[in-house]
């Protein structure tokens, strides 16, 4: 009898936990759906990029703009070099990318720039503007939502397992009491229903809750996409910002440069919570709303050879001692 009571209690706790998690997640989903677009102003390309693909898309869009406007150079292996003798851009994010790109004398890996700018204050400013406009939710709660999502899936699966165990008891245990058989049957059915509903809720909310973008934010994206169709011709170099923001690096129209930027040896810094070389922290870049930030064609640049250079920028004016290093003159 004691076992039966324990089993019934476990069932009740499981069902309650699933309901509590599902309710909390639905409440968050409602916040996403009901968030009001408070900003009447038109979004800039980097804000649209954030809505479309998070901080990674933002940095990639900045990279594309700076490269196409001649302020940034890419060399093989995805190394970035600020171009000398040009005016500094006025945009904070663009300046941040150039500063990060100039961090190493021989060129800075694109992944490092993505990582640094992705967690920088300029990216934070973009996020704050979008939160204030009701287009994304604050990211702090997102980790909790992910935890709850995982818990919901786990508890729902547990419900189904316990239900099957209960049904096994009902069907195969020798001569159970009629009341016990009835209670177990009811519990099994309740668990089955709860488990199925829980998993269905998980499936429905998983994609929506992994993103911070509100329904209003998605409306803005849909509107932007009607203005900028994928593959539309780009005339001026600076005009690529919105296509890349919406559809990813492929819209830059320069597969060779894209391949170098995404070169395999352009590794992501080993820190937690980052994707694709960026660390937006609050955005799951694997679930962007359009385009790709790492095309499949980009992993085979074969650029390893460029790392063969043992001395960066070796001047022909150097003499002796292997010929590398600064301070030489006369060549």
């Amino acid at each position: 009898m004691g076992v039966l009571v324990t089993l019934i209690l476990v069932c009740a706790v499981l069902i309650a936990a699933v309901i509590a998690n599902a309710t909390s997640l639905k409440s968050r989903y409602a916040r996403i759906r009901q968030a009001v677009d408070t900003g009447a102003r038109e979004l800039g390309a980097y804000e649209v990029a954030y809505l479309a693909g998070g901080s990674l898309r933002v940095v990639n869009t900045v990279l594309a703009v700076l490269i196409r406007t001649g302020l940034l150079r890419v060399s093989r292996g995805g190394l970035l070099h600020p171009v000398a003798g040009v005016d500094r851009p006025g945009d904070d994010l663009e300046r941040a990318v150039l500063a990060a790109a100039g961090g190493r004398p021989g060129g800075t890996p694109a992944a490092e720039v993505r990582h640094e700018v992705g967690k920088g204050q300029e990216m934070g400013a973009v996020e704050h503007r979008l939160i204030a406009a009701g287009l994304i939710l604050p990211g702090a709660a997102n980790g909790m939502a992910r935890t709850r999502l995982g818990l919901l899936a786990l508890l729902s699966a547990l419900c189904l397992i316990v239900a099957l165990v209960s049904l096994f008891c009902v069907l195969f245990l020798p001569e159970p009491a009629a009341m016990a058989r009835g209670l177990l049957t009811v519990a099994a059915v309740a668990l089955l229903v709860t488990g199925f509903v829980g998993l269905r809720t998980y499936g429905r909310l998983r994609r929506a809750l992994r993103s911070l973008v509100t329904e209003a934010g998605r409306d803005r994206l849909r509107t932007a996409r009607t203005s900028y169709r994928p593959g539309a011709p780009v005339t001026a170099a600076s005009d690529i910002s919105m296509p890349v923001a919406l559809y990813g690096m492929g819209a830059m129209g320069d597969p060779a440069t894209e391949a170098e930027l995404n070169a395999r040896n352009n590794s992501v810094p080993a820190t937690g919570g980052c994707a694709g070389g960026t660390c937006g922290g609050s955005y799951d870049n694997t679930h962007s709303f359009g385009g790709g930030d790492f095309s499949s064609s980009s992993s085979s640049s074969g650029s390893s050879g460029s790392s063969a250079s043992s001395c960066g920028g070796g001047s022909s004016s150097c003499g002796g001692g292997g010929g590398c290093g600064g301070g030489c003159g006369g060549g």
């Binding site: 093989r76 650029s303 063969a308 250079s309 043992s310 070796g314 022909s316 010929g323 590398c324």
Partner: peptide, 13 residues
């Protein structure tokens, strides 16, 4: 610059 390359592993470029 000859000192900057390895003949056995030439830069891709």
């Amino acid at each position: 610059i000859a000192e900057n390359i390895r003949p056995t592993s030439l830069p891709t470029s």
